[in-house]
Simulated assay, not measured.
Amino acid sequence: MDVPDLETIKEWMGEYFHEHAGEFATALGLARAIRALRSSGRRAQGSRSERARGPRSVVLINANGSAAATETMTELARRTLRPEDGFFVHGVTAADGPRPSGASVDPRAAVPQVLAAALRARPDTTDAFVVSDFGDQAATELRAVLRVPVVGMGEAALLEASSARFGVAAGTPGLAESIAARIDALGLASRCTGIRVAGDGAEALVPDPGELRARWATAVTQCVDQDGARTVIVAGGEVAEGAGESLAVPLICPVAAACRRVRSLLG
């Protein structure tokens, strides 16, 4: 076997780096974000004990890159973590995160952006984080470096629903895949009756409230009548409110479930 000379090896290395530059950049950014968050996490405990007791600060991180979705989720969160109860909820958007669509998305695609968003939100002055993504992207990494509660929206909703046989109404096929993976990861497949999709792609996110409500209502009804669900997770936020008003089963909003979990952890 011929041994390549040094120049050939350099050429091969250059080609490999060029082909995988995005992966290297992501890994480098992820490492930097984790180091910065770890440093902030070490400072957090002392700074919280030193400042006067005031509203408890909760940061909601939207992983999908949509500022409009962040605003909607934040308003939903404030209905559970209310200012009059001593909570302040601030929503931040993971820059360049994957936008909502009907297509499948790498379940880890937004991890570096979520970590960076947490760093921008000043972890040293934050009492809890909510990762507002059903795949709970970066929740594990944040828990490893921060000394405050980090609640994943998907995990909170699924665990709350798992006391009964539950179904899930999802907005798009891509989201349904992410939800199925999270159910398997939490060991809840035997409790889930199935996932129903409210549309066949990105058009499920159309802004017509009447059409959206009708699609969600159909998906929720299928979960109950055809699959036998005793409770349904409606992974669609505000647009799905009232989707199952005529059904005698509880509906779970993932954002609200995550906020209930935060409230119980903070006391």
Rank of each mutant, 00 (worst) to 15 (best):
D2P: 15
T8M: 07
E11L: 14
W12I: 12
G14R: 05
H20P: 02
H20K: 08
L30H: 06
A31G: 01
R38S: 06
R43P: 14
A44P: 15
S47M: 03
S49L: 13
R53Y: 07
I61V: 09
N62S: 09
N62E: 11
A63S: 09
A68P: 15
T70C: 13
T74A: 10
A77G: 10
R78N: 12
R79G: 14
T93C: 08
T93F: 03
A94N: 09
A94F: 11
A95M: 11
P100R: 02
S104D: 10
S104C: 02
S104V: 12
A110I: 12
V114Q: 01
V114E: 04
A118M: 01
A121K: 05
A121D: 03
A128N: 02
V130H: 06
V130C: 06
V131K: 05
G135Q: 01
Q137L: 10
Q137T: 05
L142H: 09
P149Q: 11
G152D: 14
G152M: 09
A156Q: 11
A176Y: 13
I179A: 02
D184L: 11
A185K: 06
G199A: 11
A202N: 11
L212Y: 00
W216G: 04
T218K: 13
Q222M: 09
V232R: 06
V239H: 05
A240P: 04
A243G: 05
E245Y: 03
S246I: 02
S246H: 09
P254F: 07
V255D: 00
A258G: 06
V262K: 07
